[in-house]
């Protein structure tokens, strides 16, 4: 038990440290480093920023290697290296493997044309899969939702009716704003102006939500500093005081 506790300690400069405590201090230091940008650009912020980019890229490479390249390519070609050594080798994976390698040809100017084939394959695949889905999702279903009966067939729900009416008027007026084949005069001028108001409301809602999202990130950091880091600080300070 004591050995296990000993092995979970980090030894730095002869000091025995708990890795969780070290992690909390690192998080706090990096939080302050990133927030220091508010005072102005500085080397501490730059260091934290580069560290973040580097770690994210490194983590991404390791994950893709471990979760994609090894199980989907190497272990399929050489099953004896993977968790299922009794399986037969699957040589079909050579085709996507080769396409993936051709993508890397972009780094060699003389052979960068090779990368066009996997790109063309990917574009073709996703256009084929995507067009029906996007048409169904963004056009047909949305148009159907816009054309809900305003007054309904049976009893009238006034709140719902008003909501349907606002959606209908909003869609028509906003579409007329983007109709440029005739000058925006007369009826078209009025509807396009109403369309601008609907657009402004949508932008305002988007901006409000963005503010809320950014504020939430700050709240998250403050919560970390107050509820996770500060208790550690107070424990350390109390040891000093004693």
């Amino acid at each position: 038990m004591a050995d296990a506790e000993q092995s979970s300690q980090l030894i730095i400069l002869g000091l025995s440290l708990n890795p969780q405590v070290v992690g909390l201090w690192l998080q706090a230091a990096l939080t302050f480093a990133i927030l220091s940008f508010l005072i102005g650009d500085n080397p501490v912020y730059k260091f934290a920023e580069h560290l973040f980019v580097g770690i994210s890229a490194g983590y991404g490479v390791v994950i893709v290697w471990k979760q994609a390249v090894l199980p989907l390519l190497i272990f399929k070609l050489l099953p004896q290296l993977g968790p299922k050594p009794d399986e037969l080798a699957d040589y079909w994976v050579l085709i996507p493997g080769l396409l993936g390698l051709m993508m890397l040809a972009r780094f060699i100017p003389r052979y960068d044309w090779l990368s066009r084939y996997p790109i063309a394959f990917t574009v073709g695949l996703f256009m084929g899969a995507g067009i029906p889905a996007v048409v169904q999702m963004n056009l047909l279903q949305q148009a159907q939702a816009t054309m809900k009966p305003v007054l309904g067939l049976g009893s009238i729900e006034w709140g719902l009716a008003l909501s349907c009416l606002v959606v209908l008027v909003g869609v028509i007026c906003t579409l007329t704003y983007f109709y440029f084949s005739r000058p925006h005069e007369g009826v078209l001028g009025v509807t396009s102006k109403i369309g601008i108001w609907f657009l402004m409301v949508a932008f305002g809602a988007g901006f409000g939500n963005t503010v809320m999202a950014r504020m939430s990130l700050l709240i998250g950091r403050v919560e970390f500093l107050l509820y996770e880091w500060m208790p550690i600080v107070s424990v350390h300070l109390s040891k000093y005081v004693q």
Partner: peptide, 17 residues
């Protein structure tokens, strides 16, 4: 979703997708 994303997704809730 994050609040930034929510505005884009409300129409899909209204359309019952």
């Amino acid at each position: 979703v994050t609040a930034v994303m929510a505005t884009d997704l409300y129409p899909y809730w209204k359309s019952e997708q």
